[in-house]
């Protein structure tokens, strides 16, 4: 398997504070990779830097062999990386359909097939297609955020805490859909505090602590690792 994304010695500063202190990791094509860690570990910062919302101080982000470090977000999105932002951040005063269309903003071709695809993944969204985004429930908003990201037809989808603030049963649904999307050929980079669910889903996991990667392994390995169990799974 080739690497779709390579992060090399990435450093990111917020003002004077070094939020990410030289992180390197690879994302293999067709896999589900997860970054786990507690609050303030720098997980979201890494995702925001990859998609160009935050600029890196040093290091490289290489996507399919091409250096995309500090490129504009619209360039990165049109090249096939998309971000499902933390807290969903759907557009509340736009209809579900409009939300989906915005997801495909960088594309100029026909969208009807992709809209059908998203609706087949999330039949709930089809029922609600004329409703305003802000009137959806939390779980539906998360579905919409994922659907919106898929509309750009990404090769790599990055998800920032998809389980945030959702009921456990909805979290399970979301993760089964993440697997389904992955089966259909989209590589997934997942950032989670809900380590249990993330490790069960991911083929490879990285543990992030205060801006450094401290542990690597397959999801299964880390799930049974004593230190991890103590720190993140609470058992």
């Amino acid at each position: 398997m080739s690497n779709i994304l390579e992060i090399k010695d990435l450093k990111v500063n917020y003002g004077g504070i070094e939020a990410v202190k030289g992180v390197s990791f690879d994302v293999e094509e067709g896999e589900i990779i997860t970054l786990i860690g507690s609050n303030g570990a720098g997980k979201s910062t890494i995702l925001n830097t990859i998609v160009g919302l935050v600029k890196a101080a040093s290091g490289n982000v290489i996507f399919q062999g091409q250096d995309i470090t500090n490129k504009d977000t619209n360039y990165i999105v049109s090249n096939g990386i998309t971000l499902v932002p933390e807290g969903r951040k759907i557009f509340p005063d736009m209809s579900v359909l409009e939300n989906l269309k915005i997801g495909a903003y960088m594309r100029n071709d026909d969208l009807s097939k992709d809209i059908e695809w998203v609706y087949s993944l999330f039949p709930r969204l089809k029922e609600r297609s004329w409703q305003l985004g802000g009137t959806l429930s939390g779980g539906e908003q998360q579905m919409l955020a994922v659907g919106r990201a898929l509309m750009s037809r990404p090769k790599l989808m990055m998800m920032d805490e998809p389980s945030l603030g959702l009921a456990p049963i909805i979290v399970r649904d979301i993760f089964s859909i993440i697997k389904e999307i992955n089966n259909q050929g989209v590589t997934i980079l997942l950032v989670e505090q809900n380590a249990n669910m993330a490790l069960k889903t991911a083929s490879k996991a990285y543990v992030l602590e205060t801006g450094n990667i401290t542990m690597t392994g397959s999801g299964e390995e880390l799930l049974h690792n004593e230190a991890i169990r103590e720190a993140y799974l609470g058992t």
Partner: peptide, 11 residues
């Protein structure tokens, strides 16, 4: 509706 989200969509 949401500047950050809009930017993340590539706008």
């Amino acid at each position: 509706d949401d500047e950050i989200s809009a930017e993340a969509m590539g706008i």
